[in-house]
Simulated assay, not measured.
Amino acid sequence: MAADVFSRGGYRGTTMIEIANASGISKPTLYHYFKNKEEILVRLYEDVMEQSVEQAEHIAVEVENPADALHALIKQRVVATCENQAIHKVFFEEEEELPRPMMEKLLQSRHEYEGIFKSVLLRLTDDGYAMTDPVDATLYVNTCLGAANWVYKWYDPNGSRTPEDIGSHIANYLLAGLAAMSANISLTV
């Protein structure tokens, strides 16, 4: 509920009483679990990153074919962003409100998450995937994540496409760019 309230009013514009009311609990009960709204914001960020890393690790381990794994990683990111639009709006727009130690932890989690993507991308070389130009793994992964994460801005839950459909299309578009670069592969990390 806090994510919904933060996404509508912004972190600074939200009060603990609004979060308590939206959650259907009293303000003292909310204070029993969280001493302030900063703690709630930190928990939201921790939950998003923990879930993201766990899901990515699962895909990287379970999906043997690296191209299929990369497709699944991109699709999963899009689906998670669509299905949790409010929390992702907070995640991407309220980052500057985090305390400095949390920012450092968040960056470590992001690097871990991006590292999973890069490891799958690098597996493509072992699988004989060929490209004409060297691919900067960091740039490619950030491009994938930018495309996947940006859907929180425009996804319409009442629209004609499901999160899975949108995720598959975005993954197909991003993988088509790699496929178009067929010849010798050389990834930089």
Results as ranks from 00 to 15, higher is better:
11 Y>Q: 02
159 G>S: 10
43 R>Y: 07
50 E>I: 02
63 V>Y: 06
185 I>R: 13
59 I>M: 03
88 H>T: 02
149 N>I: 10
39 E>N: 09
27 K>P: 01
5 V>I: 15
70 L>D: 02
11 Y>S: 04
23 S>V: 08
10 G>A: 03
188 T>Y: 10
41 L>Q: 05
28 P>V: 03
19 I>N: 01
175 L>C: 10
9 G>P: 00
158 N>C: 01
175 L>S: 08
96 E>W: 09
64 E>T: 12
12 R>N: 11
35 K>S: 13
35 K>L: 07
114 E>S: 06
161 R>Q: 12
12 R>Q: 12
98 L>H: 09
166 I>A: 15
112 E>M: 06
101 P>H: 12
83 E>M: 09
53 V>D: 04
153 K>S: 08
133 D>E: 15
85 Q>D: 00
126 D>H: 10
162 T>A: 11
153 K>Q: 15
35 K>F: 03
80 A>G: 09
177 G>I: 09
20 A>D: 03
59 I>R: 00
86 A>L: 00
185 I>G: 11
178 L>Q: 01
39 E>R: 11
104 E>W: 08
40 I>F: 03
92 F>C: 11
131 M>A: 13
104 E>A: 14
26 S>N: 03
99 P>K: 05
2 A>K: 05
161 R>A: 14
113 Y>D: 05
166 I>T: 15
117 F>R: 06
111 H>Y: 05
